[in-house]
Amino acid sequence: MGQKSEAGLDDRFRRFGTVGFTGITRVNDFIAHLEEGRVAGTRCRDCGQVFFPPCADCRSCFSRRMAWFAVEGEGRLVSWSRLAFGPAGFQEDVPYTIALLDFGGYKVFGRVDRAVSEEELAVGLPMKVRVERLPGDRLSYAFVKA
């Protein structure tokens, strides 16, 4: 991607989500992984600490040597909420559902796919994560039933 910010920095991350609030981060390869259909976190090459959302720095051992890993398999639904009102930029989107999945070693926060109705949801429900392409060349991910 040839996108550059005003300061000449790689701002690919601006494409993440329905509305982007920040474009500059040292984990902007997150976007490259989404492009290839993967939701990815990072693992410290020195101590093995796992991070989702991905981190560029390890707060356990202070290493900067990170490897990407794909979020795979089933997570358990920790909780969710269906919003009747949204903030600026999301008003056209309501109602939509945000949720948290627990994959054991890490958790993932995101949206529940629109095809899943609220009646189908229950705490503990196995779900998996799927990359979503949004209008305007934007990228996100959503949870579907496993």
Partner: peptide, 24 residues
């Protein structure tokens, strides 16, 4: 309100304060 949470990893999904307490 849209920037009330983690703007890098949560706000892009359209989060609001009541929805978080609702999850609790």
């Amino acid at each position: 309100m849209g920037r009330g949470a983690d703007i890098q990893w949560e706000s892009p999904f359209g989060t609001m304060m009541p929805a978080y307490y609702a999850m609790y």
